[in-house]
Simulated assay, not measured.
Amino acid sequence: MKVLFAAPSKDWASWQPALEAACPEIELHRDGDPASFDALIYAPGYPENGEILDFTPFTRARVVQSLWAGVERIVTNPTLTQPLCRMVDPGLERGMTEYCLGWVMRAHLGMDLYAQDGIWRGKTCPPLATSRRVTILGMGELGRGLAAALRPLGFRVAGWSVSGRPVEGIETFAEADLPAALARAEILVALLPDTPGTRGLLNRETLALLPEGAWLVNAGRGTLFDEADLLAALDAGRPGHAVLDVFSAEPLAPDHPFWSHPRVTVTPHIAAATRPETAALIAADNLRRAMRGEPLRFLVDRTRGY
């Protein structure tokens, strides 16, 4: 099986040994005749001359396996006709769960109330988790993983997705039920992909539906909200605080108002990362499935964008 590693050169040193260990039967190359490859391992930024990759010459390729969880920068390529699979890495899922769980607990316990300024604030005691309502926007692998971590702690977890597909043990909301999902969200965690249906989903009108003082944790995509709308909503107290790990333009400019806003915490897109040692196993499985003509895992639905 001849595979092209169509990703930036900086990724080669970490991915090449992981991929060859997970799938020793492959011949992994960094260049060659496009028509000779059975599959592509792909990440945006290839080719590195700034041009958009033309998938047309890869007439033999049975699958394009993305190294990224998000595929919004790939599905818009009109030359891509081969099956595209997104990366669902258990290591990334675990990292995202830990990041979001940490911020949910910080919000729940009100840890930011205790400034080290000599003032004894003994009257502020948080409720138990069984009284705290958490809403997760996006109930894919990441959202379901976070819900599974929150439930044993007693949080009243609900999930929202476009389909409203039921998830065992939690209240679920469908696309039309967004107002109800937001109205209950004392802590709102957003793990949505970047699609036409999610861009600008949180705006002045929808943010105003949050309970006063609610926390927003966005570790999905920065296109979920208009930045001016979010700043205005923060000034109005809905949400009361925003933890933002992703942005429409990265890195965030040094003079961006998010840095200095007292109700915003910026983290530099570190919520989770794809780890070659675990993700290579997913890629290897799909390469073998493609060669055997079996159904591919995590196949992208082009109409939905993920």
Rank of each mutant, 00 (worst) to 15 (best):
P262T: 09
P262V: 11
P262L: 09
P262G: 08
R263C: 15
R263V: 07
R263E: 08
R263L: 11
V264P: 13
V264L: 10
V264E: 11
T265A: 12
T265D: 08
V266N: 14
V266A: 13
V266L: 15
T267Y: 14
T267R: 13
T267N: 12
T267Q: 14
T267E: 14
P268S: 08
P268Q: 05
P268N: 09
P268C: 08
H269N: 10
H269F: 10
H269P: 08
I270K: 10
A271Y: 12
A272C: 05
A273K: 08
A273R: 12
A273I: 02
A273P: 01
T274D: 00
R275M: 04
R275G: 00
R275K: 01
P276M: 02
E277P: 00
E277R: 02
E277S: 00
T278K: 01
T278S: 05
T278N: 01
T278M: 01
T278V: 02
A279F: 00
A279L: 02
A279I: 00
A279V: 02
A279T: 02
A280D: 02
A280M: 02
L281G: 02
L281M: 03
L281A: 06
L281C: 01
I282D: 05
I282V: 15
I282C: 03
I282L: 04
A283E: 03
A283I: 15
A283G: 06
A283N: 04
A283D: 06
A284F: 07
A284W: 05
A284C: 07
A284L: 03
D285A: 15
D285G: 08
D285Y: 03
N286Q: 11
N286R: 09
N286F: 14
N286C: 14
L287W: 07
L287H: 09
L287P: 12
L287N: 08
R288K: 13
R288L: 13
R288C: 06
R289F: 04
A290C: 11
A290Q: 11
M291Y: 06
M291H: 06
M291G: 06
